[in-house]
Design a protein around this nucleic acid. Structure first.
Length: 348
DNA sequence: ATGCATGAGTG
DNA sequence: ACTCATGCATA
């Protein structure tokens, strides 16, 4: 108790120094972030890299449909995302072609008046948005074609289109066309439905004896356009609803597709093996902010979630942390506040 | 399961 | 310089 009081005073003190004008707000705010223990290790190797990934095409499409104001398509990504025709170059890589009608469809989806069938998964008959691949002139090279592309014949049965509710294949003008359906209904799901799915997903996943990390890795085998693998972190966050609503909505069909495959695979009592990762020596060190510094940061955050660069520098100096560490901490804190769990509680 | 971090996209 | 999806490292 004494400690708590002292902590509060300490926060208040530290806060006034930098946010004097905001001090009056302090007492009316609440600390909402947890206070996990952290070890005082301020040495952070500003290290390496590790490939970062931009949102998947599917996510962008979903996001655009969900909130067209926020995700106003710009030329740069329109050419990458508002496409429904992908072609392959001789190396088997995708390259997109623009389809204006798709943009129009996405915009239509953004309208609240839009109505869609309420069940999922559904057939292709009522689909509105579809990502289509054309194997065009490489149609004679099965190994270069989207979903049917497999690195080994052994996995062909598991990836059979027959088992993927999102997949459809047809031949048009001599071209092999592969489609991935993106059900519009999913673009605007009720949080409760997401919650339900996440729970069922986890349950089934465990029943299948598959780890979160496995799911992430196996995802790449689905060969969905713009979707490779995902990390254990992401799968975990999906299951625990600690992702943004949009993110949850975008990932749902992907994970649903995985579940279909996994269950079909289990049914046919098949097995597969996956492998390891990159084993570089250049591992990044995770910065650890001590509890006391964290309390101060939370104090600052409570009165000013978006401090200017100047203030960030002041805070960094006061806490003896790198400015970038402080900046990122604020970014993450803001992001954390927006996550599903919180926003769901608010809006419900 | 979660803290700190990256990087693409955006204004 | 921010947001957002996502990942590595680690509790």
């Amino acid at each position: 108790m004494h400690r708590a009081i002292l902590g509060f005073l300490f926060n208040a003190w530290a806060t006034t120094e930098i946010f004097e004008q905001d001090f009056q707000n302090l007492t009316s705010r609440k600390m909402m972030m947890d206070n996990k223990l952290a070890f005082s290790n301020s040495l952070t190797s500003q290290s390496p890299f590790s490939g970062r990934y931009s949102p998947t095409n599917l996510y962008r499409v979903a996001a655009a449909a969900a909130d067209s104001r926020r995700y106003m398509p710009t030329a740069s990504w329109k050419s990458n995302c508002f496409v429904d025709n992908f072609k392959f170059d001789p190396n088997g890589n995708f390259f997109p072609t623009i389809d204006d009608s798709f943009l129009a469809r996405a915009e239509a989806l953004a309208k609240p008046e839009s109505f869609y069938p309420s069940h999922f998964p559904s057939t292709f008959s009522n689909q509105v948005a579809v990502a289509r691949f054309e194997s065009s002139n490489v149609v004679d090279h099965p190994n270069h074609v989207g979903l049917s592309m497999t690195s080994s014949s052994s996995s062909q049965d598991q990836l059979s289109p027959h088992h993927n509710p999102f997949y459809n294949h047809s031949v048009m003008n001599g071209m092999s066309v592969h489609q991935i359906a993106m059900h519009p209904h999913d673009l605007d799901i009720d949080p409760r439905e997401l919650e339900g799915f996440a729970e069922r997903f986890k349950q089934k996943r465990i029943k299948l004896g598959v780890t979160q990390a496995d799911v992430g890795q196996q995802l790449s085998r689905l060969k969905m356009p713009g979707i490779g693998s995902l990390s254990q972190s992401t799968i975990c966050r999906f299951e625990s609803l600690t992702l943004s609503h949009n993110n949850m909505v975008a990932l749902k069909p992907v994970l649903h597709a995985w579940l279909e495959f996994a269950e079909a695979e289990a049914r046919s009592k098949k097995k597969e093996e996956l492998n390891g990762h990159n084993n570089n020596d250049k591992k990044r060190k995770r910065t650890s902010i001590a509890a006391q510094e964290k309390r101060l940061l939370e104090g600052f955050f409570s009165v000013q979630p978006r401090p200017s660069g100047e203030k960030i520098a002041q805070i960094a100096e006061k806490l003896d942390l790198k400015k970038n560490v402080v900046r990122v901490w604020f970014c993450n804190q803001r992001q954390k506040q927006k996550r599903m769990k919180f926003s769901a509680i608010q809006s419900d």
